[in-house]
Each structure stands twice: as C-alpha cells, then as structure tokens.
Design a protein around this nucleic acid. Structure first.
Lengths: 217, 217
DNA sequence: ACTATTAGTGAGTGATTACTCACTAATATA
DNA sequence: TATATTAGTGAGTAATCACTCACTAATAGT
C-alpha cells in the first residue's frame, strides 16, 4: 500500500503539514501517471476517476477545475526542481569554502539533481511537457528563475571567475552551458534513452570533466 | 499570399514533386500553427478548418484521421531534422578532408542546423512535443537515429580520435555530449528564451569552443 | 447526543469532439 | 461534348468532454 508516498512528499512544498485524504492521494497518483503517459489534454477526468477508484465528482470536490489539478502537481514540482537555489544556506555554503572549486560545486549539484529527477520523474515529465502550453506555468518558471536561480548562480560563477578557476566568458553563457550540460544528460538519461545501458557515475563524471575543461581558464 | 511557402518546402521530402491544392496547404498551415501553439490534443479539427477557411469535411478528404494530419507534418520534419546524416555525400565529405578537424565539422554542422531550426521552428516544436506521446513517432525517430545518424556519427568520431584530435572517451559519450551541446543551445535560443537578447554568432562560437576544449586530447 | 462541516457520490447537463455522407463544383481524360 | 475522377461542402451523428448538483456518509466540535 501507498506506492504513492513520493507524491505525498512532492506536495509538501513548505513547512505546512498539508494533509490529504486517502482518496485525494489516489486522485493525484492517477493524475500524475496519466498526465505523464498521455499528456494533460489527452487525459479525461473520467479516466482519472476510474483509475483512482473514486467518483468523478470527488475530483471536483478537491480541485475546482481540471487545470487546478494539473497545477497542484506541477507547481510543487517546479519549486522542487530548483530547490537548491531556494534554500537559504545554499549560497553561503559556496562562499564559506564548503566548495573550494566550481568543479566540486558542480559535482554536488549534479548528483543532487540526478537523485531528484530519478525520484520524481513522472512529475518532471509533466512539467517539462506542459510548460510549453500553459502561460501560468511558464510565467511561474520565469519568475522563479530570474528572482532566485539566476542571481545566485551568477554570484557563484563570478566568485570562481575571480578566484581564477573559470575563464572570463560571459556569466550568462557559463550558466547556460552548465545548465544545458546537466539538463542534456538528465534528459537523455531519463527521457530520451532510459532503457539504454548507462554507467551513470561514469557518464556524470565525463559530463563534468568535459564541461570543466571547456570552462577552465 | 503564400506566407506558407516554407511548409510546402518542408513537405517535399523526397524527389517526388507532390502537388498540394491551395486549400490543402491552408489546412497544413493552420494545423502547424495551432499544433505548435496549443498542442495536438488540445486543437480541434473544427478550429483548424475555421482558421484554414475550409469546411471541416475537407480536412478528412485529404487526411483520414486527425492523427494522419499530424504525421503528415511531423514525419517530414523528423527526416529533415537529421538531413545531413541522410545525405549520401555527407560522410565522404568528412573523410575526403573537406573537414580537417572535428571542430571544423562541428562548426558547419551547427550553423547548418541553426538555419534549419530557425526556418522550420513551428514544425520542430510540434515534433519535440508530440514525440513524447505517440509511439509511432518515437519508433520512427529511433529507427532513423540507429540506422542512419548513429553509425555515421560514430565513424566520424572514431576518425578524429585516430587522428589524435579527440580524446579517447567512449564514442557514445562524445556523440551524446555533442548532440546535447547543440540541442541545448538551439532549445534555449528558440524554445526557452527566444526573446532574450542573443548574439547568435558569438554564442555558437562559445558553445563549440567549450565543447572542443572538453573533448580535445 | 446534537449539530455543523467536510468528503464522497453518480446521474445528469449542454457543449464539443472526431468523423461520415450524400451532395455539388471543378477538373482531367476520352 | 460526354464522362469519370477528384476536390470541396456542411448538416448530421454518436461519443465523450469538463463540470454541476442534490444527495448520503463520515467526521469534528460542543
């Protein structure tokens, strides 16, 4: 029972201990599975109700509209996707010499995000797919990125440029190259070729090495 | 008139001079625009007919089902996406020392694919989105990649590894890093942050330089 | 034990869906 | 000119859509 414990975890976005009824969790579980598989627009509320083992009306008791149900899944996923950058200690950890090099920082970041994607893959798939079609999600993403991720990332890059580890490339380009390297690996690993034989540790090491050789002064 | 000339070009997949009626092109044009904007599942055939200025029945005269209409757009896009690797001369050009270095080869490939994405962006967007949900498309992609793209790409990589330009990383990893570097740039440039101020030439140069510094022996 | 609030139900709603079909208009072939 | 083939139409269809509502079941507060 409770195969869906990870969904419960995903939805605990802030400290507030939100409680979900058994049926509500069943709805969320079914919705995540079907949205990930067929897409939001191609999944009907009646299908979700059927798979969740509840009446269709129960869905609308908890979520006013079908889109509200989507947002209940996607919004927490979006925040957790950039969680390291939302944590208060994050930047301080970098500047307090907890990471002596950008490479070390990258290594921690990648293995952290690797674990995240592995754990929450279906929800991430939904976010990835639906962000293209729903302006609310896109705007939320934009806001979180420009307000929280970008400025902190930029400080970190500048820090290691001043230390002389990183070449004097434009900060935006360093950030872009870093994110696309990581996202490229994770997307290939989990989305495009999940059944390929992967030596995850080795491939992550190569990804970081190639990236660092490129970015190094 | 004929804002949609690029669609006509896109659909000329092989030598066969397929001819499309004016109304058929209008249908394709409308479908591309709406599929790209709202997604396949969220777009109705009645909307497409309305935007194309034709009766709904006309769509089904040319395409048996809505999915056939999607495939009529997506299949040529898929083939054109990997067009360089489908061309007969392609590998020969590399081995006949038309490209003395992998870097030079990459530069040509990237500017080539950049122009392609720029020209056919809406169709590529549809392919990108819908490949996740339609197994026919996924299988077609897989087939084209494993039969045509991968083996040629692998030969090229091995060639420049033997020449001593590239480090002795696993060939698969070199290909993956190359493709994700390029796809990462193009996706960021055209999909995620299209309205960002881009110096395309400079960013492509940086992308190649960072990648090559990473891959070099 | 009484009451108020919330959780859950499932038949029912009007709107919309992909698709059909009998028909006309246009074009090609003879 | 007669005929066959294709292109285009739009009203019609059964199925499905997201969502409502009047109702019952369960839980919580007093």
């Amino acid at each position: 029972m409770s195969e869906h414990s990870w969904i419960h975890e995903l939805l605990q976005i802030d400290g507030t201990k939100e409680k979900f009824s058994e049926k509500q969790l069943k709805i969320l579980e079914a919705a995540v599975e079907m949205f990930a598989e067929k897409g939001y627009a191609a999944t009907s509320t009646s299908e979700i109700a059927k798979k969740a083992g509840v009446a269709e009306g129960t869905i609308f008791r908890h979520y006013k509209t079908k889109k509200d149900l989507l947002l209940a899944i996607v919004t927490p996923t979006l925040f957790k996707s950039v969680a390291p950058f939302l944590a208060k200690e994050f930047v301080r950890e970098v500047f307090d010499n907890e990471y002596e090099t950008y490479e070390q920082f990258l290594r921690t970041l990648l293995s952290n995000r690797y674990a995240f994607v592995k754990k929450y893959l279906p929800a991430i798939r939904i976010l990835w797919q639906e962000v293209a079609f729903h302006s609310e999600i896109k705007q939320c993403f934009r806001h979180v990125f420009t307000e929280h991720v970008y400025p902190k990332f930029a400080r970190i890059v500048r820090h290691f440029q001043e230390k002389g580890e990183l070449a004097e490339l434009p900060v935006d380009s360093v950030i872009r190259l870093t994110i696309t390297s990581f996202a490229g690996f994770l997307a290939t690993r989990f989305l495009f070729l999940p059944e390929h034989h992967w030596d995850d540790e080795a491939e992550m090491e190569r990804t970081i090495r190639v990236l660092m050789n490129g970015l190094r002064r």
